[in-house]
């Protein structure tokens, strides 16, 4: 009974609320663009804001399973796919901003950037790796891939590391902002290591 109430609540309230809330950053960028409030360098502002939100959604996605473990609330897992897809959504907007607004299809400059600028190489790699995850995020794909789905989606850890590295490598001198993201990511990954180690220790004792 309780389960179905939670299910219903998630489906008709929780998910729609998160869905709309996740569009607020985009709306805010759009509103600022409309009001000419993006500052002196609007393209840079859009690049930064979409990049920030791509990384934030990625970290939120990674926060879901620790949250479930800590709070015991398994319903939160139902939000994970949406958060992950939003990370992909903002990363795509971010990449398109760069491709269209910043470089304006200057393919030579684009190729050179991807090959020669490590932070761009890393960003593009992260985005490319997000594609298979987005494509296989449906329930049907999950079922079809079975254990391989879990294996494939472990890529998300690497992608998050690349995302933080991308940010770290692009700042000129003040790494305090990427450092905050690095700290959060370390906590999220460190937590998993701890849990895994404890679980293994527990199964060993059980076996003994």
């Amino acid at each position: 009974m309780l389960r179905t109430v939670t299910d219903r609540w998630l489906r008709f309230v929780g998910k729609p609320v998160v869905f709309v809330a996740a569009l607020v950053p985009l709306a805010s960028i759009g509103l600022d663009a409309w009001n000419d409030a993006l500052g002196a360098n609007p393209i840079e502002a859009i690049t930064h804001r979409t990049g920030d939100w791509a990384l934030r959604f990625l970290l939120l996605t990674l926060a879901v399973s620790p949250l479930r473990r800590i709070t015991g609330w398994s319903g939160v897992m139902r939000l994970r796919r949406m958060l992950g897809l939003y990370a992909f959504f903002y990363a795509t907007l971010h990449g398109l901003t760069w491709l269209v607004l910043d470089q304006f299809f200057d393919w030579e400059a684009i190729a050179e950037d991807i090959l020669k600028r490590p932070y761009i190489t890393v960003g593009v790699t992260a985005w490319l790796l997000l594609i298979p995850l987005a494509v296989t995020s449906t329930r049907g794909m999950m079922r079809r891939l079975g254990r391989n789905w879990v294996r494939l989606h472990r890529l998300v850890y690497g992608i998050a590391v690349l995302g933080v590295l991308h940010f770290w490598w692009l700042v000129k001198a003040d790494v305090s902002e990427p450092a905050v993201y690095a700290l959060i990511l370390s906590a999220l990954l460190g937590y998993r290591v701890l849990v895994n180690r404890r679980r293994r220790a527990a199964s060993l004792t059980a076996a003994a």
Binding site: I43, L101, R117, W169
Partner: peptide, 19 residues
């Protein structure tokens, strides 16, 4: 001569769209 992390071939004049 590029900056090691980005190209110096073009620039965006503040207030303009095209580099």
């Amino acid at each position: 001569v590029d900056h090691p992390r980005w190209s110096q071939k073009k620039e965006r004049r503040i207030g303009e769209f095209f580099k």
